[in-house]
Each structure stands twice: as C-alpha cells, then as structure tokens.
Design a binder for these strands. Structure first.
Lengths: 211, 211
DNA sequence: TAGATTGTTAATCGATTAACAATC
DNA sequence: TAGATTGTTAATCGATTAACAATC
C-alpha cells in the first residue's frame, strides 16, 4: 500500500542532481563522461554513481563511460519530465504566488491548470495567466479537469480538511508545503514535503555547531 | 574543516519535527509523554526517539517518560531558536518576497535586517518593513551590521559571484535556494539547501512509481 | 591488442531497531 | 513495592565504498 518499487529513496533523491549536472555538461557541449570524472565534479564517489545508475539500467559502456546526452535523456524519462500531469495550486498567499510564478512546472512534467484560494478577495486575480478561483469551486473544477497533482500552499488545518476531498477526486500526488502529515493518513498517495521552517531550524543548528 | 560535531545529520534533521510535535502537545496542555506514545503519533519507533534524544542528554525519567514542556525547551535550545542572528535576504523576486513575508524568522532565532536586489527598479520598495536595497550597498551594509546569515533567493550565477564576498564579510551560514553548490567551495560554512525543483522532480518520480 | 571503465559482487560503514538492565 | 519506561548496549538492516572480473 503506497509503497515505492525496488529503488531506494536515497537513490531517487540524487537523480534530480544528476539530471542537473548532466544538463550543464550537455550545454557545454561535452559528449561523454566517466563515473570518475562526474564523481569529482559532483563531490561523491564513482562507485556510488555507477551503483545509482545501475538501479535503472546499464547506461554506460566499458572503456568509454557514459554518453551525456543519452544519459540525460534516460534520467529525464525516469523522473518523468517528459510527462504532462495536470496540477492545481491551492493557496495563493505569498508562498503560493511565489511557487506559481517562480517554478518551471512544464520543464518538470507538470502543467498548472488551476489556482485556488479561500480568500474571496483574491478571486479573479490573474496569477501566471490563470484566474484565482474560490475554493468552493474546487469540486466542480476537479470533476471537469481531473488534476493528478495538488500543490498545497495553505496552513496545515486547511490542508487536513481539503486533502481527503482531493484524494477522493483523484489527486495522486501532493507537493506539500504545509505541516499536515498527508502520508500517515493516505499511505497510497505520493507526497513530497517541503518544510521550509524545518530547513531554517536545521540551518540554525548547523551555524551553532559548524567549526 | 567545516565539520559538524558528533551528532549525525539524520538525527539533526528530525529535531525540528520533534520540536513541532512537542509544541502541539504543549498547546494541548499535555504534560508528559512516553517515547512509545510519541512514536505512535509521529510514525517512528520508540527506540529511535530515545536514541535521538540521548545524543544530547538524558531528558527523560525512567517509569515516567518525558516532560513535554521541558523537552520542548531543550530541543529549542539545541536548535538555537532562542538565539538572535542577524540575517539578510538577497534577491527580492517572487521567491525572495514570499520567503520574506511568509517565514517566521524570529520564532526560529533569526532577525531579518536587510533585503537586497540587483534590480534597481525595486530599490526603496518596502518588504516586511524593510527597504529593498541595491546589491551595490551590500558591502557597506555588512561592514556596519555584520549579518551572520544570508538567504539566497537568486540564480546560481549571482550566488556564485556574491558568496565569496559575503563569506569575507563574515557570513557564517547560508539558506540557499539557488543551485550554486556553496558547500563544495566553502567547506567551513554552514549551508542548508532548499532545492524546490529537485523536490518537484522527486514528486514526479514518486507519482509514477507509487502503487 | 592494451588501456580504460563499466557492471556487479563483496566488504565496510553507519543508522535503525530490538533487547534489557537500571531506576524512577 | 510493582509497574513503567528510560538510557544504553547489542543485533539487524540498509546504504556506501572498495574491488575486480567482464568487456568495450
């Protein structure tokens, strides 16, 4: 129930970084790279790179290394950047607005199709080319447009109220900026949490204890 | 060089979540809790909680459990939420604005004292009670105010240019929203990265592979 | 072919979980 | 005191690193 297949989450979390580095190398016109070279650039071991990549297939070639263009493509496919998943954003406060305006959803396989906020004063404002809708319209909108992803930029109370409804309406993944613990209530749903305040507190600890 | 003392990063990253849960329990007026109860609420093992806490001291009492109020205090101290560290924000675009307006810096031991952007058109605008200053004034401002923390809401190119200067001016910690890899260039500096696009791509993978 | 570098197995290291004696 | 629950040591599990045979 809600489990992820074989590959460990540690490996998966490194994939976007590989993708990023390979993208840069590609831009620079470099054609091939060995795990050793790449490991030096990325600050990890060659062994780890080879282990990580081999979770998904034998993308390299002995004596040669990896072809950057094709490895970039492969990792992109693994991450699903070629997909087009309809997403809605809930919460058009400061954070929601920033996420809407700042993120390249399309470059990552998402298509933002609706923005909602329960503050009626915002209704009709245009955000990233989309009208901000009142949360009351969420049900009908989802019935009509079947978004697969919801980005939650709302307080945890509101998140806890809305999530069961969204799941019922077919949402399969949440990009969760709230502190509501979706995963424990909905184990079959994909969740990626962004806990900015946790991150800031971790920084606070590091500052006190780095020497 | 830039190492963190004994306690592992895995443990540290769990502290803010403990702090959050304990804060809620405290709000609810609950006085004590056992590692077993807390583990059930948080979805982890009692063993892990006891191990984690014992990295910092014996906060519990056999046969009783943990006093919520005092454990909350202790973890707060460990994280440094009682400190007051002057911070500056660099980059007042969508993301920077959201971070400035959205985050409770003070509740986490930080004090935002300056906001900078290299776009002169923004200069003078008021953000969270602070005037947006042009990046040209960064040097003088740091000389005068000695901020310890910089929040980087700028592209990686700009981050790479500014970071050496900021380090020279005494900045000891970076909350880094860019993709510039500070840690590899400045190993003695505390860095906490927030890579939103990596997180979104991880979600994309999870959606494809959760069943 | 000889050299380079992968894919993959084995060894090591670290983190999590289990167990239990200490003790409130 | 008896029961509960910690602090802590030992066992297990998983992730990282090292080694090397396969092979381009």
């Amino acid at each position: 129930m809600g489990k992820i297949e074989g590959v460990s989450i540690s490996v998966i979390k490194r994939l976007p970084r590989y993708y990023r580095f390979l993208g840069e190398l590609k831009e620079q016109g470099i054609v091939r790279i060995s795990s050793k070279d790449l490991s030096a650039r990325m600050g990890l071991t060659a062994s780890q790179i080879r282990q990580d990549l081999n979770c998904f297939g034998g993308f390299g070639q002995q004596g040669y290394g990896y072809n950057i263009e094709s490895l970039y493509e492969e990792i992109g496919k693994i991450l699903g950047v070629n997909k087009t998943r309809n997403a809605i954003l809930i919460g058009a406060g400061n954070l929601g607005k920033a996420v809407a305006l700042h993120m390249s959803f399309e470059a990552r396989g998402f298509n933002l199709i609706g923005v909602f906020d329960r503050n009626a004063a915002l209704s009709g404002q245009i955000l990233r080319g989309l009208p901000i809708r009142h949360t009351d319209g969420l049900y009908d909108f989802c019935k009509d447009n079947s978004p697969v992803v919801a980005v939650l930029c709302i307080p945890s109370g509101a998140a806890k109220e809305l999530t069961p409804e969204l799941v019922k309406l077919g949402v399969k993944g949440f990009w969760n900026f709230s502190h509501y613990d979706i995963a424990s209530d909905f184990p079959n749903i994909a969740v990626e949490n962004v806990h900015l305040s946790d991150s800031l507190m971790t920084l606070s600890y590091k500052i006190s204890n780095t020497y």
